[in-house]
């Protein structure tokens, strides 16, 4: 039982990171119909920026409790600029091009960012300083530490904040309008370029947070870390119904749970025929299953309603 509980906790922590990243995919898809494959790299850049600024701040003698929020803010700011630039330079000129063009460009941007990071931060792994006391809490035999609690709570808070922005504010209304119909929104006086830029910036800021969370949790940062994470988060977004914010959150958490329970129990359930080496396969198996059985995802709208 305690093992089961531990797997649930593992899954929820991992899933909340997936969910945050998945929001970035889903927001951009909802508005532009574009899968921004560079999003995973934005997560990585966020982690790297936070790490660099944190090291610098601590070096200048800033207290850890001040340095941490400051470096996270810097990483968010840096990623917002990055997200804006990616959209402005790589996607906006292709907005009316065939759909294939921006998709391939997205992959190009991803490769460029990854190699840029390799040139700036090197090939080595960077260890992320441990600033939050890592005292483990025991819940019914399962272990959860402070960082994991913070990750889960913070992820939920940011998701809730995003829901408020999208559903309750003027900006959110503009975003929904652009998602619904760009031309109509433009005719109604919505500055669609501005809305799209802001969407990219919000998504990138969330990616930066996710990057810091991953780095703080595993205690490492590497120029390669965004790639698999990005693919998993994309899967989570599709699972929940891409373009749907609630779907991305649900998909992220579900994917985390599927992975940890799958990896934890498949060996025992199949008598060792399948093993935990299939952990990463679960994500992509889920992706294929969703696309075949329910292409619109769990919470996605039925195609007929909008086509």
């Amino acid at each position: 039982m305690e093992i089961f509980l531990q797997q649930i906790i593992n899954g929820l922590v991992q899933g909340s990171v997936y969910a945050l990243v998945a929001l970035g995919y889903t927001m951009v898809y909802g508005i532009l119909g574009l899968i921004n494959f560079a999003h995973g790299e934005v997560v990585m850049i966020g982690a790297m920026l936070a790490l660099s600024s944190l090291t610098a701040l601590l070096g200048w003698g800033v207290t850890p409790l001040l340095a941490l929020p400051l470096s996270i803010s810097l990483a968010m700011l840096g990623c917002m600029v990055l997200g804006y630039s990616i959209e402005r330079i790589a996607y906006r000129p292709l907005r009316h091009a065939p759909r294939l063009a921006p998709l391939i460009t997205a992959i190009g941007v991803s490769i460029v960012l990854q190699n840029l990071a390799m040139m700036i931060w090197g090939r080595s792994y960077h260890s992320f300083p441990q600033l939050i006391a890592n005292n483990p809490h025991n819940i019914g035999g399962a272990i959860i530490n402070n960082i994991q609690i913070i990750i889960f709570v913070l992820a939920l808070a940011f998701m809730a904040g995003l829901m408020v922005v999208v559903n309750r504010t003027r900006l959110g209304r503009a975003m929904r309008a652009v998602a619904e119909n760009q031309h109509a929104a433009q005719l109604m006086g919505v500055d669609i370029n501005r809305v799209i830029s802001i969407t990219f910036m919000i998504g990138s800021a969330l990616a930066a947070i996710a990057g810091v969370m991953v780095s703080a949790n595993y205690g490492l940062a590497h120029y390669y870390m965004g790639f698999i994470l990005g693919l998993k988060a994309f899967t989570a977004a599709v699972l929940g119904g891409i373009g749907n914010l609630r779907g991305a959150m649900l998909g992220g958490l579900l994917l985390g749970l599927i992975e940890s329970l799958g990896a934890g129990y498949i060996g025992d359930l199949t008598g060792g025929f399948f093993g935990s080496n299939y952990q990463d396969v679960f994500a992509f198996f889920v992706l294929i299953a969703v696309l075949v059985l329910r292409p619109s995802g769990l919470l996605g709208e039925r195609l007929a309603e909008r086509a």
Partner: peptide
Amino acid sequence: HEYTNDKAMDFTAVLTAVK
């Protein structure tokens, strides 16, 4: 006997199974 891959970062699931 559990497994991972040479690109993984998260081992909590397999380690919990090992536990």
